[in-house]
Simulated assay, not measured.
Amino acid sequence: MAHRCWNESYAGGELPWDTGEPEPLLVEFVTSGRVAPTRTLEIGAGTGTNAIWLAERGFEVLGIDVAPLAVERATAKLDGRDLGCRFQSLDFLAVSAPEGPFQFVFDRGCFHVFEEPEERARFAARVATALAPGGLWLSLIGSTEGPPREVGPPRRSAREVALAIEPALEIVDLHAAEFRAHDVKAWFCLSRRRLEGSGE
């Protein structure tokens, strides 16, 4: 796959995904109590909005992004505050995330950028490796639902999502949602690393 140069997007200011506000679907998930503050990895953390929001609520967060400029901006947002949050430039498909295992992994629109099924499956397998047994991964994914559109997040079907994730993890919640900032359909996909030796 010819990887998009994400650093160039940050340099040029082409950041439609960077709303400057924490993702509403993540906010609802956390405030509903479905995950308690814990060791967390955010993949594709961008300029750090979601990671910092989590850290402000007691999560210990490592935010990773392939774009060094994004990591610089995210670190600057911390502004010297004593939060359990730090950022690192890292290509998740090429290098294992340090400091694992994590009890919670979050990505907003990172899994779906990979065009090849094999890459999406590798992404899911790497998440499984990063998670502690029983740990949760929340992925927000562009959906094939809704009317045709020329712009916005990549579109993945529920079948494509399941084929990539289920060999590595157990999908516990997959339902239709929306990237509200962009008014486009999404999948809310919550997966869990199976408990060791349980087959469950």
Rank of each mutant, 00 (worst) to 15 (best):
M1G: 14
M1A: 08
M1L: 03
A2C: 06
R4D: 15
C5S: 13
S9D: 13
S9W: 05
Y10D: 09
Y10L: 05
Y10W: 02
Y10G: 05
G12S: 12
G12F: 03
G12T: 12
G12L: 08
G13M: 08
E14I: 07
P16F: 05
P16T: 07
W17R: 06
W17P: 08
D18P: 11
P22R: 00
E23S: 13
E23H: 14
P24L: 02
P24Q: 07
L25M: 11
L26P: 04
E28G: 13
V30K: 01
T31C: 09
S32K: 11
G33W: 11
V35P: 00
A36T: 15
P37R: 01
T38N: 04
L41Q: 00
L41F: 00
E42S: 11
I43T: 03
A45D: 08
A45L: 05
A45R: 03
G46W: 01
T47Q: 12
T47M: 05
G48M: 02
G48Q: 02
T49P: 11
N50A: 11
I52F: 02
I52P: 03
I52R: 00
W53F: 03
A55R: 00
A55F: 02
E56P: 09
E56A: 00
E56R: 06
R57N: 06
R57S: 09
G58Y: 00
G58L: 01
G58A: 01
E60Y: 00
V61F: 10
L62E: 09
L62S: 07
G63I: 02
G63M: 01
I64T: 08
D65F: 04
D65C: 13
V66S: 15
V66A: 15
A67F: 01
L69K: 13
A70Q: 05
V71E: 07
V71L: 08
E72I: 05
R73D: 10
R73V: 11
T75W: 06
T75A: 06
T75M: 03
T75D: 09
A76Q: 15
A76R: 13
A76Y: 04
K77D: 04
D79K: 15
D79P: 15
R81M: 10
R81F: 10
D82E: 07
L83I: 04
L83S: 01
L83T: 03
G84V: 01
C85T: 00
Q88D: 08
L90H: 04
L90E: 07
L90I: 12
L90S: 08
D91I: 11
D91Y: 12
F92L: 05
F92H: 02
F92I: 04
L93G: 12
A94N: 14
A94T: 13
V95S: 14
V95I: 14
S96I: 07
S96W: 12
P101T: 06
P101D: 05
P101E: 05
F102S: 03
F102L: 07
F102A: 05
Q103A: 14
V105Y: 02
V105F: 02
F106G: 14
D107C: 03
G109F: 04
C110A: 10
F114G: 10
F114I: 08
E115Y: 04
E115L: 07
E116M: 06
E118D: 15
E118M: 09
R120Y: 09
A121M: 14
A121F: 09
F123D: 07
F123T: 05
A124C: 15
A124R: 09
A125K: 15
R126G: 09
V127G: 05
A128L: 10
A128M: 09
T129G: 14
L131Q: 01
L131N: 03
A132W: 04
